[in-house]
Every structure is written in structure tokens, then in C-alpha cells.
């Protein structure tokens, strides 16, 4: 079990799989002011990531797992994170 939900706080740990996405979304809808602790997370399934990013909950602790932390966009509230500042158009090739 990787997700512990209380009234205003969600604590995620270990590997958080796709099965956790739905309860997390319901929780986020019910608790728009909720806070999330990711400190013990090793991996978030993409579906869980997008739930966390789509809702307005606040991440109060970032993963201690350095590799995972590097991947997560830095914004405090992910929803407001637009694409990074530096973009450029380049020709590229199909894989």
C-alpha cells in the first residue's frame, strides 16, 4: 500500500501504481486545500503524476529519491507550471 489519505493530507510512499490514481483524484476533488507528502516515493505512475499535476493540492515534501525528484517539474503548484522558458524550434527526425 503506497497511499495514505487523511482529511487534509496525503502521504505517498514507495511505488505508487495506477490503481492509486482514482482514489487520489477523488480525494483531491474533496480536499482542494489538501497537502501531499511525496518524501518516501520512489516512483509515481504517470497516471498518478497527472492527477497530482491537474489538481491544486500543494506538495509539502518532495521525494528523497534524487532521480525521481530531478524529473518532477520544480513548481510548487504544478498546475501553474507552463512549459519551461527556454524553447527553440528544431528540425528533428523520427525514431
Amino acid at each position: 500500500m503506497a497511499v495514505e489519505l487523511t482529511a487534509a493530507h496525503a502521504c505517498l510512499t514507495g511505488y505508487v501504481g495506477i490503481d492509486e490514481a482514482e482514489p487520489l483524484l477523488s480525494w483531491a476533488i474533496d480536499h482542494p486545500e489538501g497537502t501531499v507528502d511525496l518524501s518516501g516515493v520512489n516512483h509515481l505512475h504517470a497516471a498518478v503524476c497527472q492527477v497530482l499535476m491537474a489538481c491544486s493540492v500543494r506538495i509539502v515534501a518532495w521525494p528523497r529519491d534524487e532521480d525521481l525528484a530531478r524529473w518532477l517539474p520544480p513548481s510548487r503548484v504544478w498546475q501553474h507550471e507552463a512549459n519551461a522558458k527556454h524553447t527553440a524550434s528544431k528540425q528533428c527526425t523520427d525514431l
Binding site: 495506477i18 490514481a21 482514482e22 483524484l25 483531491a28 476533488i29 504517470a46 497516471a47 503524476c49 497527472q50 492527477v51 499535476m53 491537474a54 489538481c55 530531478r70 524529473w71 518532477l72 517539474p73 504544478w78 498546475q79 507550471e81 507552463a82 512549459n83 519551461a84
Partner: peptide
């Protein structure tokens, strides 16, 4: 050597959010 998640520019209202449709 480097990687990031890129989110869409806008999100739908949570009530209408299809969480099993990948937008990342």
C-alpha cells in the same frame, strides 16, 4: 543525463478530468 515531465498548457476541471487518458 536529464529529463522532465512536460505538462499540458491547460488542465480541464477536475470533475471532467479523464485520469486514464495520458496527457503528459
Amino acid at each position: 543525463v536529464w529529463g522532465t515531465i512536460v505538462a499540458p498548457r491547460s488542465w480541464p476541471a477536475l470533475e471532467n478530468f479523464d485520469l486514464y487518458r495520458c496527457v503528459l
